[in-house]
């Protein structure tokens, strides 16, 4: 355990040093990250005003709170492992990682954490600007706020696990990026990033309840913006835990089979 902590500390230091090489990218990312919620809030606020102040229970300030919360949760849980992985396998960068006496997943976790730490001031600034500009109205209860952080951590663990598993498909498919692209679109719709899930048609809502995506983004985002009933909170945590366990099982299975394949054909 102390060994892993030492590895993480060093990985974090390295990853931060690496990221700092691209300061210009930070600024571009700032614009990219702020633009999505800004557009969504503007559009939906207009719709709400035309509908007499509210759509599906969301007022303009309610929309602002929801999309800001979604942006925050998305920033905290987002990964880019599948792009990394397909490149690694294609360009033979995976072999050196396999030769290290540490599981390669740790390097990836550390790298994502480093990036998120670095981006914290950026995302903080964007949040503040959007909050003030759109008069966001956050209405969670104290209990909701208290459960937000654990929900966010579970959401990250779940999303990271699923996306790392998906990334392992690169062992079988040389062109895995098409699948990744499809996944990104599905997540955008079904995780609640594009619009609150209550806006989806009822049958689709029923389907999403049985899928992992909304527990990765919409659930923590709603805890923070509108708040959720005690029952919904319990359901949410249960769903996160079950999906996380399933995901971890799937990950270790895929990892073992993928490695077997990789070491059969050669890196």
């Amino acid at each position: 355990m102390t060994h892993l902590i030492a590895v993480y500390r060093q990985q974090l230091k390295t990853a931060i040093a690496e990221q700092l090489q691209y300061r210009a990218a930070l600024v571009i990312w700032l614009i990219e990250v702020a633009l999505g919620p800004a557009v969504s809030i503007s559009v939906w606020s207009t719709v709400a005003r035309n509908e007499g102040g509210e759509v599906n229970g969301y007022s303009p300030s309610g929309f602002a709170a929801y999309f800001i919360a979604t942006m925050l949760v998305n920033y905290a849980t987002q990964t880019w492992v599948f792009w990394e992985f397909s490149r690694r396998v294609r360009e033979g960068e995976f072999s050196p990682l396999l030769l290290r006496p540490v599981h390669p997943i740790h390097a990836d976790i550390a790298q994502h954490l480093a990036y998120k730490i670095l981006m914290l001031p950026v995302i903080g600034l964007v949040t503040l600007i959007l909050w003030l500009a759109f008069h966001a109205g956050f209405t969670p209860s104290t209990a909701n706020l208290a459960t937000f952080l654990p929900a966010l951590l579970l959401a990250f663990a779940l999303r990271f696990t699923l996306e790392w598993t998906l990334a392992l498909l690169a062992f079988w498919l040389t062109q895995v990026n098409v699948i990744n692209q499809l996944y990104v679109v599905v997540v955008l719709f079904l995780s609640g990033q594009l619009l609150p899930l209550s806006f989806l048609p009822a049958p689709l809502q029923a389907v999403t309840a049985w899928l992992p995506f909304q527990w990765m983004v919409a659930f923590p985002a709603q805890l923070l913006s509108t708040g959720l009933s005690a029952q919904a909170v319990v359901t949410g945590f249960l769903a996160q835990l079950i999906w996380l366990l399933l995901g971890l099982g799937l990950l270790s299975l895929t990892w073992r089979r993928g490695l077997k394949r990789y070491t059969a054909v050669g890196g």
Partner: peptide, 17 residues
């Protein structure tokens, strides 16, 4: 690691090994 000084990669190996 491509973008950072050599010594930083060495430090990482120190921790890993």
């Amino acid at each position: 690691i491509w973008d950072i000084p050599v010594i930083d990669s060495f430090e990482l190996n120190r921790a890993i090994y």
